[in-house]
Design a protein around this nucleic acid. Structure first.
Lengths: 164, 164
DNA sequence: GGAAATAAAATTGTGCACAATATAGTTGCT
DNA sequence: AGCAACTATATTGTGCACAATTTTATTTCC
């Protein structure tokens, strides 16, 4: 007789540790496959993928007439200043954004689009379209999957909060 | 009258470029949220997340009596030597694996577990279990989502092949 | 008003990813 | 044999991620 009721068997641990059974690896592999699909499209705009995400945030803010601070962008993308500061510096050097210390609160740096950054938006509109075509899944499947991932994300971030 | 039939309207492009509508961002955010959940668990083993994935591959190979080459590990994880070489060097320095040039073909480097690397497997079995608990989704949902991601991955990798 | 606590961004250091290139070894062709 | 084509890994350089610390500014509390 085995002790399967009380302890994981050899076969169980094989299953648990099998690479192909890891949800985390599926997410990891898909993330890199998707970003590598974006790479040639974004190369036409001379943007990296994280830079593109920052520009999405900036275009949204600009439409709403806002000049977000570094920390707002970070909240949106879940990135900290260690990642954003050098990334924003590169976007500034490229002339797409400006960074400016707030006069009311000198700790805060506000970020704004330049005209060049604003005008890039139009050229970027076909990026999501072209990518969807390459995904190989229908739009409704993509929407459903996105929803499931968002649910998972909110679970993960909620639990994070609970432990603090 | 609008030109909506022939050209994307302003509202369309708003929708297309909205951060929260991007499947890619959902994947990107979930990937980082999951790895940050792994981090404290893997810290107990003194492994990073990519190092853990390599160890999963090595444990599987070891069970099968194989000593994979660097390129086999790379195929499995979709990583190239630029990523793997330094990562494997660190695992070797930690005493978890050995790297050895093949005598039949001096170009090839084969990787094998040390006893220490092999014995770590047992301590790692509860990592997937503890993580599943933190995910906040039922096991059946996790399996379904994993399946959908695998389908997407195979689409992405298939299309990649076709263009070559 | 002034010290302590808090907050925002920047800096430093480590470890991936990945493109591009280099190095070394093997195979195939003549 | 000799050389071109190819293969496997390593190296170099850039750009994230993220932990930990630092710097500067603001708020709170006495």
């Amino acid at each position: 007789m085995s002790d399967s009721a009380t302890r994981a068997s050899k076969a169980d641990s094989d299953e648990l540790l099998a690479l192909d059974n890891q949800l985390c690896f599926a997410v990891y592999a898909v993330n890199r496959a998707i970003t590598s699909r974006y790479r040639p499209l974004l190369a036409e705009l001379d943007l990296t993928y994280p830079q593109y995400l920052v520009m999405l945030v900036m275009w949204e803010a600009d439409e709403a007439g806002e000049r977000p601070r570094v920390s707002s962008i970070g909240e949106r993308l879940r990135l900290d200043s260690g990642t954003l500061t050098p990334l924003l510096r590169r976007l500034e050097q490229r002339g797409l954004i400006t960074r400016q210390r707030s006069s009311e609160d000198e700790r805060v740096v506000t970020v704004a689009l330049t005209d060049e950054g604003r005008s890039m938006r139009e050229r970027a509109t076909d990026v999501p379209v072209r990518l969807l075509c390459e995904l190989g899944v229908g739009p409704e499947d993509a929407v459903r999957l996105r929803g499931e991932l968002r649910d998972l994300l909110s679970h993960l971030e909620q639990a994070e909060h609970h432990r603090e």
